[in-house]
Design a binder for these strands. Sequence first.
DNA 1: AATCAAGACGTTATGCTATAACAGGGAAGG
DNA 2: CCTTCCCTGTTATAGCATAACGTCTTGATT
Lengths: 159, 159
Amino acid sequence: MNHIRTISATPCEHDHSGKSVSEQVNAARKICEQQDERFTPLRAHIYELIVRADGPIKAYDLLEQLRPDRGSPKPPTVYRALDFFARLGLVHRVEALNAYIACDHTHPGHVAEFFICERCDEVKETHAHSHENCAPNGFVISSSVIEHYGLCETCALTA
Amino acid sequence: MNHIRTISATPCEHDHSGKSVSEQVNAARKICEQQDERFTPLRAHIYELIVRADGPIKAYDLLEQLRPDRGSPKPPTVYRALDFFARLGLVHRVEALNAYIACDHTHPGHVAEFFICERCDEVKETHAHSHENCAPNGFVISSSVIEHYGLCETCALTA
DNA sequence: AATCAAGACGTTATGCTATAACAGGGAAGG
DNA sequence: CCTTCCCTGTTATAGCATAACGTCTTGATT
Ligand SMILES: [Zn+2]
Ligand SMILES: [Zn+2]
Ligand SMILES: [Zn+2]
Ligand SMILES: [Zn+2]
């Protein structure tokens, strides 16, 4: 189907959200603790890798990056952590990329809307407006996937 | 990640769109011919299976349904057809289901927005409103994925 | 008619994505 | 101490998609 866009594996060191990696990790730790969930060393490690990726990252790329620090982890190791973070709203799955990205909103649990540049891989996350008005009469939305692909302003100008 | 919702494989005989299966197939044939694309017997066969599914259908389920009429087709057979239909806007991919569905709009090429009932698997397709206004300044959208999951009116009332 | 280029299809093989199921270990509470 | 729950490791398998090559048909060009 050729439907999966590619994403680069190049992390970036600039501070995208105005928070350092460790600040973001600590914020996640706090959110976990507030919900009586355990922010274990493994989870902290994986979450940090997701944050450092500074964009969508694939499960098997996370798996690679866990090596050799944690031996040779197997897929369930990372998928379980991703499930956990998704449940807490700390990480979103980007459906059309088969990838995962840290939520960059301070209050997780919202409906995320992504704008993904296909040229430079930059991703902007916004709070989606309500689509209840768009729904067929009586339809009750419980979750939504809203992703846009195209060119960011910079790339659009230099294209 | 447990992110993939399930869909039932039960086709349904009711006429969802007001057009019969053969009418839908003929409409697709016409759209192909208008664009100087070939609506081959294989493509017609696969398109008809998608229409008959009357909802999202998976690539490997299509593959099964092609047997034994067409011997033992392999995955590329169906993925090539799906690519073709998607290129013409006759079929949409539903990202969160890893499934494909016939466009039920008469003028393909639009941005589709799906409302998918997780209880009865009914899918309503609408024309999405523009999200350009929601985009970061200067972002140029080239394609979008908009899918909502929840309960249709009937299921919400009887839940 | 002979030639050529493009596209459609069959086939083999492989790669990527994700989960089921079972076993062991550690933390928290009784 | 002992039980319960959850976290993690591990093996195996399921599910989704494409690369690459060969053959044949179609339709245009010479
Ligand atoms: Zn978010
Ligand atoms: Zn860009
Ligand atoms: Zn459509
Ligand atoms: Zn329903």
